[in-house]
Amino acid sequence: MLTDLYVSGDSPVHRARPVRKIVALIVVCTGLFIFEGWPSVLTAGILVGAGFAMAGLRPRHALASLRPALWILVAIFAVQAMLTDALFAGFVTARFVVLILAAALVTLTTRTSEFVEGILAALTHAPHWIPKHQIALAISLCLRFIPLVRTVLEEVRQAQQARGTHASLTALLVPLVVRTLKTGDEVAQAIYARSPE
């Protein structure tokens, strides 16, 4: 979903201004929750599908975006099917799929830098006391850190499995936090070293 999945292209979807894509995404996501039901999910699904086709993205891109959430979606479907019925379970799951694909369409066709510039552009109308550049830096760093944290989490997990320990959450979180804090300090020093002041 967030690992740098940018797929280069020159379609109208790629060229659209990031602010517009974000607004479209907000409209789709909000609409899916306000108008609950199959019609809205199907409409949004067709729109997102058209977006994928227009951007020249292949089904494997869509599958790659869904894969991280796949088994969670299966679990949600199973639980909802037990508690309610298969149709409602299908609706809830289909809504997640459409939401994730809609967000993926924006991520796949927008460079992180463009994305942040888009938010910055929106911020130019904000009052001067708002620390615009710090907000932009925080956003772009966070988008970089999410795949990093996932990787570290997976490494710590595998290291513990290799030693045959049954990882408790504490044993997982302490190395995760300490390792990423160290990385954070290195990143801060790197930014500081490169800054003109």
Binding site: P68, W71, I72, A75, I76, V79, L83, P131, Q134, L137, A138, I139, L141, C142, F145, I146, L148, V149, R150, L153, L176, V177, T180, L181, T183, G184, D185, V187, A188, I191, Y192, S195
Partner: peptide, 29 residues
């Protein structure tokens, strides 16, 4: 607010986001 503070803010937003990999348990009520 210094760059280091911004980095740590972004880091813990990312850690909280990454903890989503643990499956959620939704109670029916």
């Amino acid at each position: 607010m210094e760059t280091r503070d911004i980095v740590f803010i972004a880091l813990f937003a990312a850690i909280t986001a990454a903890l989503a990999v643990f499956p959620p348990v939704t109670l029916p009520v």
